[in-house]
Simulated scan of single mutants.
Amino acid sequence: MAMMSMLIGTQTHPSVHIRATSLGLPLPNSRTTSKPKEKVVFVMGATGTGKTKLSVDLATRFNGEIISSDKMQVYEGLDIAANKITEEEMNDVPHYLIGILPSHADFTHADFCYMVNDKMDDIVARRRLPIIAGCSNSYIKALIEDEIYGFRSKYECCYLWVDVSMSVLCQVLSHRVDQMVEKGLVEEGRKMFKPNADYSKGVLRTIGGRELDHYFRVEASADDETRARLLKEALDEMRINSCKLARRQVEKILALKNDNGWNIHRLDATNVFPKRGKKSSKAWEELVLRPSMEIINQFLNN
């Protein structure tokens, strides 16, 4: 799959500030009005809820650019398993932090926070709206809550949460596994497979890596019936683990809302997914897109 990999440039670190008095410079007037904060929109939600679609929809309407907050999509490889956005789906909207690291590299909370701050400076300097979209909520929490990055002092945040009832979402995720298989999930995984692979590091942590491991180990020596059974078991495990992941992601969002006091706007997209074609598009516009636009319009003009 052809992917747009946008490099972020030199990673920056907190600079050392020299006191004005040590240089003989006058101190700034303490009553001087502080510079207004720049605006940033976060699109949050569990895997499979439509965050990618909403972020692109909003970026095209509000002159935005998108920074991915998905810790698996930052790596090269496993594009299908990680459900990376395609160039067509990007709709000419610039995307960052997708496919920029080698598959085996370490990528920490600190790496994410420094990269985001660096890219944010570039986006707002060009008077574009930064939209941070993804489901790695622990990374987002570190960015906002850790004072070392100074994010809250520079930016005013608007949080949108695309939510889908878990019973419907698990069905969506199950169907998505079938779609991934049709796109070449198994072939993609086979190319990445190594007998001594470490599934605790890099892109191999993506759901689909560990689950398909046993199948790849025995497929060459197994008969057709055994291969079919093992593949079905691997895909069923992917479905189960995807649903478990979605539950954990929702729990983290609720914790940010209830325990950390984030003003998160919930958008219920449950009734979008059972519909098809034009009915689905209409439901998306009425239940998700239009309310999101109203929230952002009020946020930007406040």
Rank of each mutant, 00 (worst) to 15 (best):
L25N: 12
G134F: 00
L101F: 09
E211T: 12
E294G: 07
Q179G: 15
G45C: 13
G77D: 02
H104F: 05
W262D: 08
K51N: 04
L185K: 02
G134M: 10
F112S: 01
V218F: 13
C113S: 15
S153W: 11
R227V: 08
V177D: 03
L173I: 09
S200D: 12
I100S: 10
E88K: 06
R126S: 13
G184H: 04
K71F: 15
M1P: 09
S34H: 03
P102I: 07
V93H: 04
V56M: 06
I18L: 10
G134C: 07
R276F: 08
S22E: 15
D163T: 14
V56A: 07
S68A: 05
I295Q: 04
I296E: 01
V93K: 08
G77S: 10
M72P: 06
T86R: 13
Q73N: 02
L97W: 00
V93G: 05
F193T: 06
M293I: 14
N297P: 02
E294N: 11
Y215I: 00
V177M: 05
E251K: 14
G24M: 08
E147H: 06
F107M: 10
G277C: 05
Q179R: 12
L169E: 05
V56F: 01
I264E: 00
E156A: 13
T52Q: 02
A246E: 07
S5I: 08
V288N: 02
G202D: 00
E237Q: 05
M4F: 12
G45V: 02
T32G: 09
K35A: 11
E182N: 13
K275F: 06
R128H: 14
N297R: 15
A59C: 15
S55W: 04
V181Y: 02
K71P: 01
I100Q: 07
C170Y: 13
M4W: 12
R227T: 04
K194E: 10
D57I: 05
L27Q: 14
D213V: 08
S174F: 04
H17E: 12
S281V: 12
K282D: 15
M180H: 05
G9P: 02
S280N: 11
G134Y: 00
N241H: 06
S136R: 03
L143N: 00
R266L: 07
L143M: 09
Y139E: 08
L101A: 04
C135A: 07
K201N: 13
R239H: 09
R31D: 15
W161N: 10
N137L: 12
M192E: 06
K51W: 03
D178H: 15
A125G: 06
P291S: 11
H214C: 13
G277D: 02
F112L: 09
G9K: 14
K84D: 03
L173K: 01
K278Y: 15
H95T: 01
Y155L: 03
R19C: 11
D121A: 12
M4D: 05
R229Y: 08
V162C: 09
G24V: 04
R276Y: 09
V272D: 01
E225G: 10
W284L: 12
W284R: 01
M6Y: 10
F216E: 01
L204Q: 08
K71N: 10
R61F: 01
V41K: 00
L25I: 14
P94A: 04
M192T: 08
L287I: 04
V124L: 11
D122P: 00
